[in-house]
Amino acid sequence: MTERKVWWKTALGLVFTALMLFPVYWMVNVSFTQTRDLRADPPHWFPWDPTFEGYEAVFSQQLPALGTSLLIGLGSVILTVVIAAPAGYALALLHLRGGRTLNFLLLVAQMIPAVVMAMGFYAVYNNLGLLNTVPGLIVADSTVAVPFGVLLFTAFMAGIPRELLQAARVDGAGPWRTFVSIVLPVSRNSMLTVSLFAFLWAWSDFIFASTLNRNGDLIPITLSIYNYIGNNTTQWNAIMATAVVASIPASILLVVAQRYVAAGVTAGAVKD
């Protein structure tokens, strides 16, 4: 009897998942649909007669945008880890004075709307000449991930056994040696989680891209999709093909790093 009940639950679970993922399926389906069939009624539920026009368009036009997004994503990851990991060490293990205040400020920082940050950055970058530049966008995108990264590193590093650190001290290692050869290697998983989110947030960012990089030569893929929609509303198969390609990093990360994703979300993770 329990056996039957379990199968019934699996079936129900499949139905729920199918409903939930229908928009994702539809995106893929439309990306393969012939242009003449896009306006068919009833719609084509499955691309029996697939076209790769959309994907050809992506690869002939969108490669620079994908490259820019990759660059911005990696830049944001490096900046985030370089700033957040030492700060986590200072907060969790070196007993930084005023640490509680700093923790509190980081929590508050996560609540500030991106629109507001975008306006502030626009004003600042306007003076500094950083508008429409990749470094400018990397810095802006990292503001989403840095507070999250510091809080996650702090939480993890506070749990590192003190014996380990003491052993290093007995061996004559200073704070820097301890950090590099003990704390960082032990915190590998947290570093993966932080990097993963920093990358995904930078890759998905639209607000900063559309405000700080509107006229840049190198635009990220999100902005490219947006411009595509604006210019070319009939070519939805090409738009959806771009969307599918833009979703690839997220899909890969979900498959290879699923447990880091779950760890990040439950660590009080944020979606901006």
Binding site: F206, I221, A243, A250
Partner: peptide, 11 residues
């Protein structure tokens, strides 16, 4: 179920 959450919002 995590998929929608990980896709870029613009997508």
């Amino acid at each position: 179920f995590l998929v929608p959450w990980l896709l870029p919002l613009i997508v």
